[in-house]
Design a binder for these strands. Structure first.
Length: 788
DNA sequence: GGGTGCCTCGAGGAC
DNA sequence: CGAGGCACCC
């Protein structure tokens, strides 16, 4: 029975789907079909176990994953369960969105106003700065960013200010800042991201009635990416599952890459302790990658000490060899990526949408974007300067938020003088001080200045406090400006009940003078206006919501969107994204760029073995995204903060190369079977030359324009790497030695000072008379020896 | 009150 | 190199 649901699942997957009662822990390797298992399990619960949709909660880490699961379940169950039973009553969402909804629902029990706004990390920082200022602490001495981090960490670990361990003076200061920070958020009727989680936990802990209601409702819990849960998230799940114990957790310790966000992969072990007798299921069968790619992944991850060994298997066969490429600088690296993609497409080996370029830090996307633009190749950038981070979008949202929640002083401060309304810093500070004195929000104080005692900005209990508006500290000019602003603002407050969100946005843009101010006649102005229109169309999705809910729902959604959510499939664009964002995705063709020490692994992990293990997991995540083709790329030199830096090749390249050496026997690259040292030099001539040291235009035939060092081939770094470890001058004779006279296309004649072999090339330091000393990559710089 | 320009410091990843 | 902060000028 239900064979149609289980068809095509392997025995382990089937077990995971059908073990419906009791705790289940699924350890799922990359590409092992865990999303499939999750969706099938929900479908199975609904159809075979007779579970009510309302009894199921599935938690994911991104909205995109939630949407995908929803869609899959829809496909599996859509017809089987009549919509009248409301199978859409399923709770599927991110931790944050589910918690936001619970808190809204239970606002009274959680001592919250249901009009609360959500502060993002930028606003967290602003609030932390405010707290420092309130406590008269020096921002130079106590970095706001560090304070924000400490507060966030504490919240993720469910530590309240009173419980904050202050064993150093700095920590004592942090504790005070944390306490003040909480007061500020409360005064603004705001919750930050971390509050969404910890306040929900406190609610469940402190109010048994609410806990029991949710425990009774959610009889089946499913949690994806369990290795990425932090303490608050773990505790939330544990509390909810405590009664029925029907908890299904899926995770992979090797893919834990969010420790900086408080995630602790040891929660996987903790699960086994807290839910004794848990059914543990291993998914090791990989349906995504070739064995060659899995071997590379294994070579990287096997060096981590804190892990449960597991082996990934695939039936896909060895497939193509991977390619390692050494570029000169980031521009050359990007050019290699773009021209390789072009070649794959022209040969019919891939579509543009099959290709993804992954990097460690967002800043690396710049050079890649330049190269894609230069070649006229469409791409989509995931993350980076995100839509919702743009000034015009933040301004517009601040207007809406202030209209929604008059207590939001941060939003008021942000927009009260944008566009300029002659309300300067002095006036704003005075307004802030005066409102604090009165124990009111700034918007409420504005209402008093305007003499509007029936203003919705004034809390009910406050309205009766005044028979007439109190004396205020503003001069006549300032007063006039403030009242003018208050009048239009009051109009929005009155209109928010009957206007749609889009309609309200129009009204505000018009009456705030924001539209005219934005469209200043410049091209950038038009771009900004178009962005605003985009927000407008997002808002229009909420037109059909119940009037009392739509503004709330809209603001909640935009506060909780993530970078990954932008990822809509697109066959006609290559994807540029960070390794973190790549988690959970797969692509036929994957480039991992910037494989250099201090980039990947990141410089901040150099001193910390635990962090280094996380870098390794990040690399592992990247490698296992690839289905067929994998390119590992590094640049000899790279511009960081406007300065050119030279970094060693990444240790991960070494691991990969050594592993390949042990298993292969002269296997050739998928791209070129002629990967000899001589033709390899041509690789650098074949790509566009935009480095500081420009080589002459390629004179190489097109056919050999792209050979690369290959794993397993005679020219791979592997064979050299092992001997290089023994001695710097390895088996391969260096071409250049100190004292040699050489000629360079740009710098002319020079003298070699020293020469050293790198992973698969040669670095030559040359003194050019009158032009200084340069370190050059032999294959790229096209150095010619000058004889006689 | 608002704008401009210089200086400093900084960018790891994100719900 | 870039954003944000601050001083100085209009």
């Amino acid at each position: 029975m239900y064979e149609d649901l289980l068809a095509g699942l392997n025995p382990a997957q089937r077990e995971a789907v059908t073990t419906v009662t009791g705790p289940v822990l699924v350890l799922a390797g990359p590409g092992s079909g865990k999303t499939r298992v999750l969706a099938h399990r929900v479908a199975y619960l609904l159809r075979a176990a007779g579970a009510h949709p309302r009894a199921i909660m599935a938690v994911t880490f991104t909205n995109k994953a939630a949407a995908e699961m929803r869609e899959r379940i829809n496909r599996l169950v859509g017809e089987a369960v009549p919509s009248s039973t409301g199978w859409k009553g399923l709770t599927i969402g991110t931790f944050h969105s589910i918690c936001a909804r619970v808190l809204r629902q239970e606002a009274a029990s959680a001592s919250l106003s249901d009009a609360y706004v959500i502060f993002d990390d930028g606003e967290q920082l602003t609030a932390a700065k405010q707290a420092l200022r309130d406590l008269k602490l020096d921002e130079k001495l106590y970095r706001p960013e560090a304070m924000r981090g400490a507060i966030s960490k504490a919240k993720n670990e469910l530590i309240k200010p009173a419980d904050f361990q202050a064993d150093t003076y700095w920590a004592e200061v942090a504790r005070r800042v944390y306490a003040r920070y909480e007061e500020i958020l409360s005064a603004n009727n705001a919750l930050d991201f971390d509050d969404l989680l910890c306040r929900t936990v406190y609610l469940l802990r402190d109010v048994p009635e609410v806990l029991h209601r949710y425990q009774d409702r959610y009889q089946y819990l499913l949690v994806d990416e369990f290795q990425d849960t932090n303490t608050a998230q773990y505790e939330l799940v544990r509390l909810l599952a405590d009664k029925r114990r029907n908890i299904f957790a899926v995770g992979d310790e090797d893919q834990s890459v969010y420790s900086w966000r408080g995630a602790d992969y040891r929660n996987v072990q903790r699960f086994r302790e807290d839910f004794p007798g848990a059914h543990v299921i291993l998914l090791e069968q990989n349906y995504r990658s070739t064995q060659t790619i899995l071997d590379i992944a294994n070579a990287v991850i096997v060096r981590n000490t804190h892990r449960t060994p597991k082996t990934l298997r695939t039936d896909r066969g060895r497939g193509l060899e991977i390619t390692i490429h050494e570029a000169y600088d980031e521009a050359d690296e990007a050019a290699f990526v773009v021209s390789t993609i072009q070649r794959l497409i022209s040969r019919g080996d891939a579509k543009l949408g099959d290709c993804a370029v992954m990097y460690r830090t967002n800043a690396q996307s710049r050079a890649l974007e330049d190269a894609f633009v230069a070649r006229g190749m469409p791409y989509r950038l995931v993350g980076g300067t995100r839509f919702y981070q743009r000034k015009e979008i933040k301004d517009a949202l601040a207007y809406l938020r202030l209209t929604h929640n008059p207590a939001d002083n941060l939003s008021l401060t942000r927009i009260i003088n944008v566009p300029p309304r002659s309300i300067g810093d002095k006036t704003i500070s005075a307004l802030a001080a005066w409102s604090t004195e009165l124990g009111l929000s700034m918007a409420a104080a504005l209402a008093l200045v305007a003499g509007d005692l029936s203003s919705p900005a004034l809390p009910d209990d406050v309205r009766s406090r005044f028979t007439k508006p109190p004396e205020h500290p503003f001069g006549s000019a300032a007063q006039r400006s403030l009242i003018a602003f208050y009048r239009v603002y009051a109009g929005w407050m009155a209109a928010k009940e009957h206007l749609t969100v889009a309609g309200l946005l129009d009204k505000i843009a018009e009456e705030a003078g924001y539209a005219t101010w934005l469209r200043d006649g410049t091209e950038e102005g038009e771009d900004r206006w178009e962005n605003l229109q985009e927000l407008h169309s997002v808002a229009a999705h909420y037109d059909d919501f119940p009037p009392e809910l739509r503004l709330t729902a809209f603001l909640e959604e935009v506060a909780l969107v993530s970078d990954q959510d932008e990822l809509i499939e697109d066959n006609d664009r290559a994807t540029l994204l960070t390794l973190h964002t790549a988690k959970g995705l797969e692509f036929p063709v994957v480039f991992i760029v910037g494989l250099e020490e201090n980039i990947l692994p990141h410089s901040r992990s150099q001193e910390d073995p635990d962090q280094m293990e996380e870098e390794r997991r990040l690399m592992y995540v990247g490698v296992t995204r690839a289905k067929d083709r994998l390119y590992l790329v590094r640049a000899f030199r790279r511009t960081i903060w406007g300065r050119s830096e030279v970094n060693e090749p990444s240790r991960f390249l070494r691991d990969v190369a050594q592993a390949a050496k042990g298993t292969k026997d002269g296997r050739r690259s998928m791209d070129d079977a002629r990967g000899t040292g001589a033709s390899r030099n041509a690789a650098f001539g074949g790509v566009s030359s935009r480095g500081a040291v420009a080589p002459a235009p390629s004179r190489q035939p097109a056919a050999v324009s792209q050979p690369s060092p290959t794993i397993g081939g005679q020219t791979s770094g592997a064979s050299r790497q092992s001997s290089a470890a023994a001695k710097s001058s390895d088996g391969r004779p260096l071409q250049f030695k100190p004292g040699d006279r050489v000629n360079h296309g740009l710098f002319g004649e020079g003298i070699v000072l020293k020469s050293a072999s790198t992973l698969d090339d040669e670095e030559v330091t040359v003194a050019f008379p009158g032009k200084g000393t340069k370190t050059l990559l032999a294959s790229f710089a096209k150095l010619r020896k000058v004889t006689g």
